[in-house]
Amino acid sequence: MNEERKENTLLQVSSAPHIRSHDSTQTVMLDVIIALLPLLLWGCYIFGMRALTVTLITVFSSVIFELLFNLITKKTITVLDLSAVVTGLLLSYNLPHTIPFWMPVLGAFFAIVPVKMLLGGLGKNLVNPALAGRACLLLSFSSAMTVPPVLTRLDLFESYLPGDALSGSTPLYTVLSPAEDGSSISTELLFDMFIGNESGTIGEVSALLILLGFLYLLLRKVVSWHIPLSYLGTVAFITLLFPAEGVERFDVVYMLAHLFSGGLLLAAVFMATDYVTSPITPKGRIIFGIGCGLLTVIVRYCAGNEGASYAVLTMNLLVYFIDKITVPRPFGAALPKLKIKKESKPQ
């Protein structure tokens, strides 16, 4: 009786904040997975079912490694936040479909255990786990990681398929090493790149689907526009104004070919925007994007290779400093004054 009264009279007011968002790690990750799934479907369509197998192996091993780590260290089970699934998906999207099945397992182990869990799990990792896993595999097994030319290129639009002009290299290499006769990239090839009718890793081929995924994430307010747009804008700006040798200035086709080829779009939309490893403030995000863009183009020009993953990894390591110099001024606070050392007068 007494207790009941106590319950009734007790005012139940929780402490601030009172407005709560329904976002959790799980819902955010679910949105990312939804945005990523069309890419997998397209990858299976163009590369065959082996792409699906590789993806499933990567995702399952990522989840299992995280679960095992949780169990062995006797910590809370964090598998249900779905971040391991996203890491697995992204890692597999960066692999060629011809890779031997045990390599993705090793890559997933590297991405989950040393890169993420050993540093304290999601939120504590310094670099994007999927990209680190890819870099590890690329350094270890460079021959198995090279993308083979697709033998069964789809005759989607028979009329203007450039025959076997592409055999032996992915479109990125066509872009990076222009034909010696000086002919520029054909618009047909550019269209193929945009649709995704080209060779590449499982998830990077279709620019269209990546952009649709970006649109979905923007509409769901999962990512902001700052990083992808400043990243892609920087790449576009440089390739337009300062193209590689043998290409005319203001060649829009060349610029678009740079944007649509390789893993650039995938990295800009899904990897550079990783909450944990990107700056917090809009200003910081734009600096981050510009840095990624600069590094990507530098690697592409100088090394003749895809530089998006290394660019994002490098910028990941600089996020702490970017965050430090872009701390916003609190509303109403005074402008920071220049610190002048007061000369202490001898008394």
Binding site: P100, P114, C136, L139, S140, F141
Partner: peptide, 15 residues
């Protein structure tokens, strides 16, 4: 056997 190339390079040494 496919050798794990990263172990012969400096990052592998650190790890």
């Amino acid at each position: 056997y496919t050798p794990i190339g990263i172990l012969t390079s400096p990052p592998g040494a650190f790890m």
